[in-house]
């Protein structure tokens, strides 16, 4: 029992799903996060992204805004509609850096918004912050 509990809620659980259609960007982020001790699952298609995330139950999602098949914001809305995913930290990456996009993303329920191109440190910091915040909330519950 204890073991199971520990596994489910442990601050040590570091599983991220990365949804991004540019293979090179995917590879870069995967390299960074893996080195930082994350388990990284990647996915390139928008249409099936929601289902993949739901079944993977990650600790963090990194999502591109413009995806083939389905818009990134749409995926966020679908995830937020799902009860178990409401607190899931979502880091949104976008190549379109307009204020308008940022507002829309925040409205849709994105936890943090990051504009491409980003520095590696920014990503790592953001991921760590989000993860820590999520654990904090989880612990406070």
């Amino acid at each position: 029992m204890w073991e199971q509990f520990r596994e489910g809620l442990s601050p040590m659980s570091r599983h991220v799903v990365l949804v991004e259609d540019e293979p090179n960007i995917t590879e870069a982020i995967r390299f960074l996060l893996t080195r930082d001790g994350w388990e990284v699952d990647t996915h390139a298609d928008g249409a099936s992204a929601t289902a993949v995330i739901q079944s993977a139950q990650p600790d963090l999602v990194i999502l591109d805004l413009m995806l083939p098949g389905k818009d990134g914001l749409e995926i966020v809305r679908e995830l937020r509609d799902c009860e178990t995913m409401q607190a899931l930290p979502i880091l949104m990456l976008t190549a379109r850096g307009q204020m308008k996009d940022r507002e829309r993303a925040e409205k849709a329920g994105v936890t943090r918004f990051m504009t491409k191109p980003f520095s590696n440190r920014e990503v790592l910091t953001a991921v760590r912050d989000l993860h820590a915040q999520a654990n904090q909330i989880e612990a406070n519950r």
Binding site: E22, N24, I25, A95, T115, K116, P117, F118, S119
Partner: peptide, 16 residues
């Protein structure tokens, strides 16, 4: 958008 995408890869890998 089209410019930022390759820039992202370039920046990320050069930092790596």
């Amino acid at each position: 958008h089209e410019l930022r995408t390759p820039m992202t890869s370039i920046r990320a890998f050069s930092e790596i």
